[in-house]
Design a protein around this nucleic acid. Structure first.
Length: 194
DNA sequence: CGTTTTTGACCCGCGC
DNA sequence: GCGCGGGTCAAAAACG
């Protein structure tokens, strides 16, 4: 049984899904058919120019680039083709003016810090403290919105959270999608390991 | 005293 | 082949 990373940014105002990373078009469409984003129930499609289009009861949006689209002011979706051997990645965009490290229930060991070109704030590199677990996360401030922090999780924990299990599901690793709600505005999407 | 953080060095892929 | 940007290592320091 694999356990996904389980971010729970309890110390922040809210978090929201920022990026879909590793789905092909069919899988992505299937996912969008399954989920509803708060008061939106969007359908997604790609037009002839490969621009992402979202139609919801509230509005119709057309992306300005093939890979990114904001739905209202809540959710930004990014999409690209899945590459072979791509790791599973989740990116969370979290409003956080004070602390840069989120308490997500797992223990992490920091192993690097790097200045990133174009970003006045450095990126921090963390590994799961479990010696047999290879999950990593990167933390950096959003260049465009310095009051937000981007947390990128890579891989799946092979062990449960050492602290509280915030969300449980019998079919982690079996279904194509789990939609979890941590707080009012916190959503998480994952899919089974390949 | 075991674990984590800090920090410069090292490594590696990519574009030129 | 070289330089650059990004990712990781690892030794020492800091921490609790």
């Amino acid at each position: 049984m694999n356990y996904p990373s389980n971010p729970n940014p309890s110390s922040t105002d809210f978090a929201e899904i920022f990026k879909f990373d590793d789905y092909d078009d069919d899988a992505f469409q299937m996912i969008m058919d399954e989920i509803s984003l708060e008061d939106h129930s969007p359908t997604l499609s790609w037009n002839s120019s490969d621009k992402l289009q979202v139609t919801s009861p509230l509005q119709t949006s057309l992306a300005t680039s093939p890979t990114s689209l904001e739905i209202g002011d809540k959710t930004e979706i990014k999409k690209r083709k899945r590459h072979k051997d791509d790791p599973i990645i989740h990116v969370f965009k979290t409003k956080s003016t004070k602390e840069i490290a989120l308490d997500d229930g797992y223990k992490w060991r920091k192993y690097g810090k790097k200045p990133i070109r174009g970003n006045p704030f450095p990126r921090h590199y963390h590994k799961c403290s479990d010696p047999d677990c290879i999950v990593k996360k990167k933390i950096e401030r959003d260049t465009n919105n310095p009051e937000y922090v981007l947390t990128t999780y890579e891989g799946r924990h092979n062990h449960p959270s050492p602290s509280v299990v915030y969300c449980d599901s019998d079919d982690f690793g079996l279904t194509s999608l789990n939609t979890l709600s941590f707080q009012t505005h916190t959503y998480r999407y994952s899919h089974s390991a390949p």
